[in-house]
Computed example of a mutant assay.
Amino acid sequence: MQALTLTSPGGLDNLTLSTLADPGRPGEGEVRVAIHATSLNYHDLLVAEGAMPTAHQRILMADGAGVVEEVGEGVTEFAVGDRVVSCFFPQWADGLPFSRVADFTCTPGDGADGFAAEYVVRPASHFTHAPVGWSHAEAATLTTSGLTAWRALVGDAILKAGDTMLALGTGGVSITALQIAKAMGARVIITSSSDEKLAQARTLGADETINYRSTPDWGKAVQDLTDGTGADVVIEVGGPGTLAQSVTAVRTGGHIALIGVLTGHEGVVPTSLLMAKQAKIQGLIVGNRRQQQDFIRALNQTGLRPVIGHRFTGLSSLADAFALQRSGKHFGKITVEW
């Protein structure tokens, strides 16, 4: 079996297409899945570059989509031929997060082997059914960024029709959030440093766009666009470098979904303004299996499809895909199929 492995201490030069032993037949409660696609997320890039240390030889990638080839004794949720997609926190079935969710010890591609492989044998609870009619590449976008956007808007912020949502950037989380918010009848404002990407966002339904490079005080610009009210929900993927502007942009009593750390891990929070606005900052990392099932039911109902900006073919192309991701030149998701 072929798999893409990372040799410590990490770095894209230490990615190797390896021949490993076949995982064999599934045991009780397990399924054997032929994996056909993955999608890239910032978390995967941190692991690949060695910024998040992992095992000496780790099979990468949290996202995986494929076909069930065999089911073990006692498995009733899946049958041979079912198209499935992986879970980011396979041990988190439902309810509130707990300690093992916070440390990534069971997250595929980090604390456990991931899905950059031809075959895996895992407990059936590590997967959900994929959306009906989706390609493997499309389904692979759900595990991390797709579910993060869904949880942020629907599970935590409880977005409703007529609300205004601000999304930072045009990566996978923000573009999926744009799609979900528009499907729910919300107004969407989105930022980017690229006018070309902003034009693409408008074709997806973005109501207002802001180039944060030419408008560095974009928090005030959001206030101006909302007649001084501010955004009901902010999808904050930048972290310390953008959080102050997000606090300016959010409405009094609004919700900031703190998802990413693209600008660093520590910074200054404008606490006085945050208190005055009585706004909520909710940190989150992806979601649980039940939320993924809810998201997929919504996708089957609405017909939304992910935006895949770049598609690579073959496990050996993963390093090139990571290089593109690191450049920041992508729009939406980057996928690899095999």
Rank of each mutant, 00 (worst) to 15 (best):
W218P: 03
T242H: 11
L225F: 02
G185K: 07
L315N: 00
A112I: 10
G185C: 13
T203P: 06
I334V: 07
A323W: 12
G11K: 10
T54F: 14
F115R: 00
E266A: 13
L6D: 06
D156G: 06
G109Y: 05
L4N: 03
T107M: 11
Q2R: 14
R202I: 08
K220A: 14
K333T: 08
G109L: 11
I158Y: 14
R213G: 12
G109V: 13
W150M: 02
I235V: 09
P131T: 00
V336P: 01
R83I: 11
A279P: 05
L166Q: 05
V75F: 10
G66A: 10
I259Q: 04
T38W: 06
P131I: 01
W218I: 00
L45D: 02
F127Y: 12
I296V: 15
G230W: 03
A249L: 08
K182N: 04
P53D: 06
S99H: 14
Q301I: 11
A298I: 02
G162Q: 00
I308K: 00
P240E: 14
L142Q: 03
G111I: 08
Q179Y: 10
G254C: 12
D156N: 15
G155F: 10
G254Q: 05
V222G: 07
G64M: 03
N288Q: 11
Q57N: 15
T144F: 08
A130I: 08
L168G: 05
P216H: 06
N288C: 13
I175T: 02
W218G: 03
Q282Y: 12
K160S: 15
Q2P: 12
V85E: 01
L46V: 07
P123E: 06
N288S: 08
D320M: 07
L258M: 12
G241V: 14
G287P: 04
G66Y: 06
G219R: 00
V101K: 04
S145N: 14
A48H: 05
F331G: 02
A62L: 06
G185I: 12
L45S: 03
Q179G: 04
L15S: 02
E69T: 04
I235S: 02
R187E: 12
I281E: 09
A167F: 07
L178R: 00
N14W: 01
G50D: 10
S327G: 09
T313V: 09
S193P: 15
S86Y: 09
A231V: 07
N41D: 10
G11P: 14
A181W: 00
F295Y: 15
L284R: 01
G133R: 00
